[in-house]
Structure formats: C-alpha cells, structure tokens
Design a protein around this nucleic acid. Sequence first.
DNA 1: TTTTCATGTAACTATTTATGTTACGAATAA
DNA 2: TTATTCGTAACATAAATAGTTACATGAAAA
Lengths: 150, 150
Amino acid sequence: MKRNSRLSAALHALLHMAERDTPMTSDDIAACLNTNAVVVRRTMAGLREAGLVESGRGHGGGWVVTRPLCEISLLDVHLALGEPDLLQIGHATENPGCVVEQVVNSALDETMKEAEDILLRRFGEIKLEDMAAAFRARSAGHAATAHRTG
Amino acid sequence: MKRNSRLSAALHALLHMAERDTPMTSDDIAACLNTNAVVVRRTMAGLREAGLVESGRGHGGGWVVTRPLCEISLLDVHLALGEPDLLQIGHATENPGCVVEQVVNSALDETMKEAEDILLRRFGEIKLEDMAAAFRARSAGHAATAHRTG
DNA sequence: TTTTCATGTAACTATTTATGTTACGAATAA
DNA sequence: TTATTCGTAACATAAATAGTTACATGAAAA
C-alpha cells in the first residue's frame, strides 16, 4: 500500500498559496507538487468545504487561502481531508468470536488509540504560520550559505 | 490499502500456542486465524529467526513458543516481524528540492517520529503474559456470566 | 456574444501493498 | 516407504492511493 501523502500535499499547497497575492491555479499547484491538476482539485475540495480555501473559475480564477496561517493548524487540515487513518496497524477481524483475538485486539486498539491521540494533539498545536516561519528561516539560511562561498 | 494485521495475527497465534503443550501445525493456527497455512508460515518465519518460536517437520511437528510469555513483549514480536511501518502518513517526495516541501516534511517527520517512539515504548512495556492474563480473566468472566442466567 | 480560461467531477488506468492460493521440494516420524 | 509437516517460490486477488482522460459548468475577457 502506498502511504497517504495528501496531508503533506495539502500543506505544501497551502504554504505556496499563502506566499502569493493572486490565486494559484490547480495547474500552478500541480507543478509545485509534481502531480496532476485533477489530483490537486480532489485534495483541495475538502479544504474548500472546510472553509480553509476558496476557488474561483475562469480568467483570474484559482485557489486562495481564506484564513490567516496562524489560525490554521495541521489538525484543521487533517480534518478537512476527511480524517484519513493515521496508523498502519490493524487487525484481521473486527468483531472476533475468539476470546484470544478479542484480547489481542483490545490491547492493540488501546495502544493505537493512545498514539493517535498524541498525533492529533500535536497536529492541533502546529499552525501553518509555524511552518511558514521555518520556511523563511531556512530560506534565509540558504541564502546566507550561498553568499558565504569562497 | 489494507491495514497490516501481521502483528495481530502473530500475537493471536502465540497465545494459542502457549495454551497447548504440543506443537500446533500451521494448519491448526490457520484455522484459529481464519487464514491460510502458508500465510502462517510466512508470518512465523520471522518469529523463528528471532528465536521466539521453533518449528518441527513431519509427524508431531509444528510450532512451539520457546520462551516464557513474561519474557516476550509486543516490541519483540514487532521487531521479529521486520519492523513494518506503523504510520500511514508519508510524503510524496523523499528528498525534495522545494524548500517549502522540505519544511513540511520536517514538521511531519518530527511529529510522526514522536508518535512512533511512543508506540514502540508501549510495545516494549506490554508482555504476552499480560495478554494471557487478560484472556484468562475474560474467559472466567464469561463463564460466570453464563452461569448467572435467570 | 463568443472565446478562452479554470474549476468540478465522473470514469478509467496504473502502481503499490497486503493477503490468499497453488505447487512442489525437503525433512521427519510412524 | 508412506504420511505428515514445514519452507518457499510463484502466481492470484483485493484494496487503497495516485495519475489520466474527458467533458460539463461557470466566469472573465475580447
């Protein structure tokens, strides 16, 4: 199974959009993400329904972020994407008759839920603005490095 | 994508094996897990290499647990299975040139690693004996419930 | 009004991963 | 020698993600 990269893609798109003062077309975004415009629209559809972005058609149309980055958390984006499963580990039978399997499932479910809760809590703490700041810092660092040659 | 259920299957098998004083054949185990004997051998191969179980061929052959359940943790089993990915979330590009994507990947990787570490730590704390005890308790509970009718 | 641009979406294809199945060889006990 | 059981390769199936094609819809510009 491929690993789900929609959260990564959505964040990447949002940060690029936020850097610009005009709408980005799906094709623009697709070029940034090395993917296809339809895939972009599919991913962005959830964000639009959640009110994180808006889309416009026709000339000058495209996608814009509708809220300040400091008000959007990774959790918001994750929820907007439809809360895809975070964990890879599951169990074969959902409602097993075998008591051994019930015990195994309980133990795993409990542990998985604990990890999932932690992930979601952290997602809630991280805002897009934090990532944008990290981006600016890293860009500045690279620029400095580039100048520091010789 | 289906979710990986090998850890669940391995635990289920180990607990059944531990309840018996003779080897369980792959077919026996497959019947318990509602799966195929070849799938069982494939899963158990890792456990054998890790020294958690032994297998014998021919008449009277099959699988036995080689260590006391209090000395086997979920982490041991997870490692024996080859440390399959625990998390579903990934990113599209592994070594992106885009600085925005680098920042997104860093933030996600960090958060994912944190959750993964917690999972592994918990796995290390849970022993098969704990699950066997839970099984015995639940079995007793069910028996009592069954008698308590009317 | 017509043209051009851009999203919205359904339908299909491709790729990857996990699991199931078949087939046969090798080892072991009866 | 035969029945049993693991070991393993090769192939089949199933499910999920992502990529592609095609076309309808809506909006701005010419």
